[in-house]
Design a protein around this nucleic acid. Sequence first.
DNA 1: ATCGGGAAGATTGTATACAATACGTATACA
DNA 2: TGTATACGTATTGTATACAATCTTCCCGAT
Lengths: 230, 230
Amino acid sequence: MAVKQPLPAEPRRTVADEVYRALKRDIITLRRPPGAALTEHELAAAYGSSRVPVREACRRLQQEGLVTAIPYKGYFVNRISLREIADCFELRGVLETHAVDSAVRRASADGLARLQELAAIEYTYHDWSSYADFLERNQDFHIQLAGLGGNERLVAVLGDLLGSMQRFFFLGLDLGAFGPEMRREHERLVEALSSGSAAAAVACVQEQIASSRQRVQRALTRNGIDLPIQ
Amino acid sequence: MAVKQPLPAEPRRTVADEVYRALKRDIITLRRPPGAALTEHELAAAYGSSRVPVREACRRLQQEGLVTAIPYKGYFVNRISLREIADCFELRGVLETHAVDSAVRRASADGLARLQELAAIEYTYHDWSSYADFLERNQDFHIQLAGLGGNERLVAVLGDLLGSMQRFFFLGLDLGAFGPEMRREHERLVEALSSGSAAAAVACVQEQIASSRQRVQRALTRNGIDLPIQ
DNA sequence: ATCGGGAAGATTGTATACAATACGTATACA
DNA sequence: TGTATACGTATTGTATACAATCTTCCCGAT
């Protein structure tokens, strides 16, 4: 008999939730660029709801670090600084490193199988929406990976962090061909986990984060994007 | 000429903010115990506002991990499990260890002075409100400490985490005499930072977190509090 | 010309009214 | 007596109206 438990992951299917997801997507994909001003009125019109759900969405995004609310003034999409990028990657490294280290000891065969599934993602070259999907799946992979470490609180924090880091990847986007490269990285990580070598797995994930950071860095310089230091 | 910058730390002085702080305090101090059901209507009556600010406060507390919202059902103060306590302390260890390690290299004399000030906190034995103040100051100390590491994002995450951990300390509260003990721990940490020894500082903070965890553990067993495993 | 004040517009903050949903309960029917 | 259905109540979800606050601009006084 299945026990009726309050699933926190169940889709909420409320207007507020839809506005939240739509607005978050638009911010991540830079359709609402860093520094853009948002008013509740305009957002309500854009997403076809009243101000109330918009308000809730904005507050959520503020706590996730994507927008800033200034009382009686409005909302602003947070600007991206080199400092913020550095901070986020650093924090991501700390969290994922620890999670992977724990995962080596705790991971179940079932969990590893699920991870393996998520590792097998690709995208079609020069297809923007396919690339956006790819990034989302990639995030799922890293969340599932962290979940194997068994610390739910850490997973929740990492989820918010990765969500707000997504837009970094859209900054200097040229749809390069690093899909296979990332896939190989993922599969090597699953291997290391399966073999039970903590050192190998940790090295693998750190290498992965470093190369992710390099991809962002290269894209910025290549496209001549000048970000404020802080 | 002072540049007018949007201070994110400025007090908002809105009704929603007051409800948020009041409700958070009541949850942390266990006046609203784990598992308690909250309705927007009752909360509005209790804190003298309408449902709108209450709603905003509840959503914030949900994202901080103190309550859970179930659509069309209500809000519930999150229960405390041994698993959650373990997860939180583990995450706290990861974050603070990293922050302190960075702080050794980056800390300014000014920042250290400010930290030293915050280290000098005490409380009067058997005075409940003094104890509550003490815990708040203690949190300020750890936030300032983490701030020296220079990663703002990490500090924000740690802030939420410490906030939701506060109520652990009220679970088996007997106002023991570990005030001087903690004060000494704080001062030793400041010393280690000043001397520039990363190893010593890291060891110090880890020891501190471990003893904090032990105090919670001991209080639970002493008062015969049986928490669910997870 | 410059500085101050005040009014108007824009925007968020709050309250209230109404709609949608979930859940318990009573009731009708087999 | 058991079960299914319909209804009533409680609660959140959403929309709208109004209040508080900030910004801007204009106009007048110095």
